[in-house]
Amino acid sequence: MGRVVLVTGVARYLGGQLARILSQDPAVDQVLGVDVVPPKVNLPGMQFVRADIRNTVVHMGVIATPRQAGGRATMKEINVIGTMQLLAACQRTPSVKALVVKSTASVYGSGPKAPALFTEEMQPRHAPRSGWAKDSVEVEGYVRGFARRRPDVAVTTLRFANFIGPGIDTAMTTYFSLPVIPTVLGFDARLQFIHEDDGLEFVKRAVLGSYPGTFNVSGNDILMLSQAIRRTGHKRVALPEFLFTPFGRNISRAGLIDFTTEQVAFASFLARREVSVA
């Protein structure tokens, strides 16, 4: 029997692209897609296909953009409760032999007490306290629990740097497409990126091969935020930190960009970000 892969989060860009790529691959017999469709409906998590022929589960369903998800509460519901239910189902399914989870390098947090570079085994010094990054920390916790209870399943956790590319729409791409890009005065973040196609290639290889463990996935080298903005050719405006949050909150309230309060903290995070992965 060939490979049957279940992909969560297929209604969103990366999940959908991955499902498309995998279904075209001769090594994969069948791809099952799962998502909360339409995403804005407040469903209590994921829907599950009761088909015990699947042997690989790819969890792409952790969402970073609350506006697209239909609010922070829904986002947390999908991210955390959805993961718990998915893992619960996997644990009951003996045919599951591999689990690939999309996570983020944001789980390392960011702050002045953090080392400049994080390797996979290092513990965060400033654990993220809100939003998507915190969800991802919790998701990884449940995934570790699952790995303990089902030692026969090869669990791969991929901690991605910021996705960037022509197709993907994230808070990061929104931020960089602003005509005037606000930054925090006196801080210049170090940023790492990964192209969406490279990221998908990684997930594909993790699905088709067997690479149990946790991996940081990022492009080589880093860009400074100021440098990245110069390369976009956009204007940069440096705001003092105390003005940054109210400013961000107002443009987000006006519906201009997909920033919630903690996504503004994101921009502030972004602008002061000191985490990169090795």
Binding site: L117, G186, D188
Partner: peptide
């Protein structure tokens, strides 16, 4: 610290910690 931290990074310095 604003500015100081930014300049220190650009000048090649980092936090006093074992990994770095």
């Amino acid at each position: 610290s604003p500015f100081l931290g930014e300049i220190a990074r650009k000048a090649g310095h980092t936090l006093a910690c074992h990994p770095d």
